[in-house]
Amino acid sequence: MTESITLVLGARGKTGRRVVARLNDLRRPVRAASRTTGFDLADRATWGAALDGVSAVYLVPMNEYVDQSIIPEFTATAAAAGVQRIVLLSARGVAGEAQPSQQQAERAVRESGIAWTILRAAWFAQNFSEDFFLEPLRAGELAIPAGEGREPFIDAEDIADVAVAALTQEGHTGQVYELSGPEPLSFRTAVELIAEASGREIRYTPLQVPEYVTSLTSLGFPTEMAELLAGLLDGISQGTGDRVSDGVRRALGRDARPFPDYVKAAAAAGSWSL
């Protein structure tokens, strides 16, 4: 009998590609889906081929690109196709809640009739080395509206470890894992750690929300996305992220990776080199 397939959405993203790598290491059949492979969550015509023979799905809604109202339809299609397990990457909001932008996806997964696990992640550590904070850091200044608020940045490696455990092992069905690093840090402290590890002069500058939205839109960001990101960062300035969650330990029986360890590894890999 052919072993069933795990479908990984967002397979070129920060967590998706790490999930794919781990499943390959476990010799689990995996279908890596992204726009480069012809899959588009917003395009229903691409769902059938992606779901064919699939028993488990790592679902990354990519809310900045996809209307969340499509998620219930996708989960219903997955259930009809025989999918037995869904692991959803979500984002944590205020204590005990998901970010408002993720609540519809969480509800769709819970109501799908499929065994589910939800991963509510804090801000990714890799945002500093693989995403929108990288170029400002390389330019020598991170200017954002986070004030002196703190966030326990979560390493994408930990998220991938939890996701693969939930996709391949028993005991995770019906669990909501809030995933964070072991210590809340301000963005100022994060930048200082990056500067020290990379041997570069990098400064942190708190901005007001309108200034940041203007700076992003001037770089070509859609206004809606710029306002969403600015609002999330402003929330951190007001303390919304200043708490540690125990999801990594609950799921894996170990502590999450400290942010300084991530920084040292990323610096050694040349992430912030010019």
Score class of each variant (00 low, 15 high):
158 D>H: 04
26 L>S: 02
39 F>E: 05
175 Q>I: 13
265 A>M: 11
259 F>I: 11
128 F>E: 05
270 G>R: 05
208 Q>G: 09
212 Y>A: 08
40 D>H: 12
40 D>C: 04
19 V>F: 00
60 V>E: 00
56 A>T: 11
26 L>Y: 02
59 L>G: 06
113 G>H: 07
171 G>R: 08
210 P>K: 13
117 T>E: 07
42 A>V: 06
236 I>G: 00
129 S>R: 08
230 A>V: 05
63 N>H: 13
80 A>Y: 06
195 A>S: 08
108 A>M: 08
167 L>P: 00
198 S>E: 08
68 Q>F: 11
19 V>D: 00
98 A>Y: 04
20 V>Q: 00
214 T>E: 15
171 G>D: 13
181 G>I: 09
227 E>N: 06
113 G>F: 10
250 R>A: 14
255 D>T: 13
47 W>S: 03
8 V>K: 01
225 M>S: 12
192 E>H: 09
24 N>K: 14
59 L>D: 02
71 I>P: 00
182 P>C: 08
58 Y>T: 01
99 Q>H: 12
13 G>M: 00
192 E>V: 10
190 A>M: 09
66 V>G: 01
269 A>I: 05
139 A>T: 10
176 V>W: 05
195 A>D: 03
182 P>A: 10
45 A>G: 06
192 E>R: 12
235 G>F: 04
207 L>I: 06
25 D>M: 10
65 Y>F: 15
162 V>T: 11
69 S>D: 15
96 G>R: 09
57 V>L: 15
201 E>D: 14
34 S>G: 08
153 F>E: 04
136 P>C: 11
153 F>C: 02
193 L>C: 08
185 L>G: 01
250 R>T: 14
31 R>D: 09
146 A>N: 01
1 M>Y: 05
129 S>H: 11
219 L>H: 11
10 G>N: 03
19 V>I: 07
231 G>D: 05
259 F>C: 03
181 G>R: 07
44 R>A: 15
34 S>I: 01
264 K>Y: 02
244 V>W: 10
198 S>F: 03
43 D>H: 04
128 F>H: 14
269 A>K: 15
149 G>A: 07
232 L>Q: 12
63 N>A: 05
244 V>N: 09
37 T>C: 02
12 R>K: 09
120 R>K: 12
35 R>G: 13
176 V>E: 12
103 Q>E: 14
264 K>N: 09
56 A>H: 10
